[in-house]
Design a protein around this nucleic acid. Sequence first.
DNA 1: GTAGTCAGATTGTCCGGACATACACATTGA
DNA 2: TCAATGTGTATGTCCGGACAATCTGACTAC
Lengths: 245, 245
Amino acid sequence: MQLELRVDRSSPVPLYFQLSQQLEAAIEHGTLTPGSLLGNEIELASRLGLSRPTVRQAIQSLVDKGLLVRRRGVGTQVVHSQVKRPLELSSLYDDLEAAGQHPATKVLVNTVVPASPEIAAALGVPEGGDVHRVERLRLAHGEPMAYLCNHLPPGLLDLDTAQLEATGLYRLLRTAGITLHSARQSIGARAATAAEAERLTEDEGAPLLTMRRTTFDDTGRAVEFGDHTYRPSRYSFEFQLLVRP
Amino acid sequence: MQLELRVDRSSPVPLYFQLSQQLEAAIEHGTLTPGSLLGNEIELASRLGLSRPTVRQAIQSLVDKGLLVRRRGVGTQVVHSQVKRPLELSSLYDDLEAAGQHPATKVLVNTVVPASPEIAAALGVPEGGDVHRVERLRLAHGEPMAYLCNHLPPGLLDLDTAQLEATGLYRLLRTAGITLHSARQSIGARAATAAEAERLTEDEGAPLLTMRRTTFDDTGRAVEFGDHTYRPSRYSFEFQLLVRP
DNA sequence: GTAGTCAGATTGTCCGGACATACACATTGA
DNA sequence: TCAATGTGTATGTCCGGACAATCTGACTAC
């Protein structure tokens, strides 16, 4: 069966993007089965009334996502891998919501504090200068799941406690017009201290999963520094890595 | 000062790649300082005797790596972020070697076993069929650091114990002509069992960092399934994530 | 029968150009 | 003074074409 593809030239959406989205949907939906050839670029271009560079741009974006593989002299085929979801800079809140876990947030602290040396270095602000500090408890099904301590540079956005309880920090940042770009993460484990154990209703000495992250926006400016602890019985980090040769 | 760039048309190395490497080196070296404009694409192209698409391809590859930011109507500038290293599908052995930790490996088991349901599903082989099983202890400075249990599909490569002790598994795979493409990882934590504690010279119940990973080659075929436990006092996962909008 | 060779197919690289779009800045208007 | 408007500049998108590099498979020669 021939895959039905078409583009709308009156739409403001770029043609290559229209095409890549349709291809991605076809792969996701199973219309394009793993291992199947995509048909050569020139024929595809003429069938759609597009130029070859445009078709290549569409295909390239899916290759970058790890959905397609190009082979010179052979063609472009769908990878036959079970997992196709791309890696993302994930938000715990969105992850939980997507998994149907009904996340809830309890804001413990929402204030302004002087920056410690470590936080100042991470955020690129002067030591002792003002930074926002937010401590939250993330719950799923009413049970505590993670303790989240975040610091943000001043003047970036208003941190409203009600909003923080209704959604995730990343969504607030995006809503404020900040386009997140990259993050440096460190994931480790350690035994819970007495205070940590109480917050998460675990026993002292119980293993905890820890994550420390600095997030940067598209200008390379640090917009958030987080120090999180998770209950490993309730949460683990899942992601897909792509090799960039 | 004008950045000195030039391309060698007699080289088999693609022009866009020559350019992107020089730009990356200039950024790494500090010749191109964070926040500085790159000069517009058309002028850059004419200066180098290249076409604009070629220059764009070079710049785009660095944008994808997170080194540059494009702004319509403004120009392309170097991100002013502290961390510029891209995310990679890391190999523990290479990581340790790069950090000057003198890694060593002790092969505990190197054999062929029938695939359990879980392993068969991960590797995409028939249940009960033959798979390689390798258990290793990774040491740094003579101290145990991680316990690595891996399964590989049959017929992929010869697993020589001596080679496994001399280098990492990923390097062996690459040497065998396998181009790694992506991996699905899950990172968690748990308390050490008695057996795990003994292997890693920890106490029973001590927190351990766990990682489970399935690695795929460029055709989407699973080439390795690993179940690793790390001593969190000696190791944590560090990586940088890029957002793909 | 096996190895080497050749042709076809397909992606990889590169060109030169055209118009659209968004941002920054200066100008103009209220 | 401040907002709206225009203008220049840079990237974003798209085109049509050309040749090179590489893989597959069939054919040929030994």
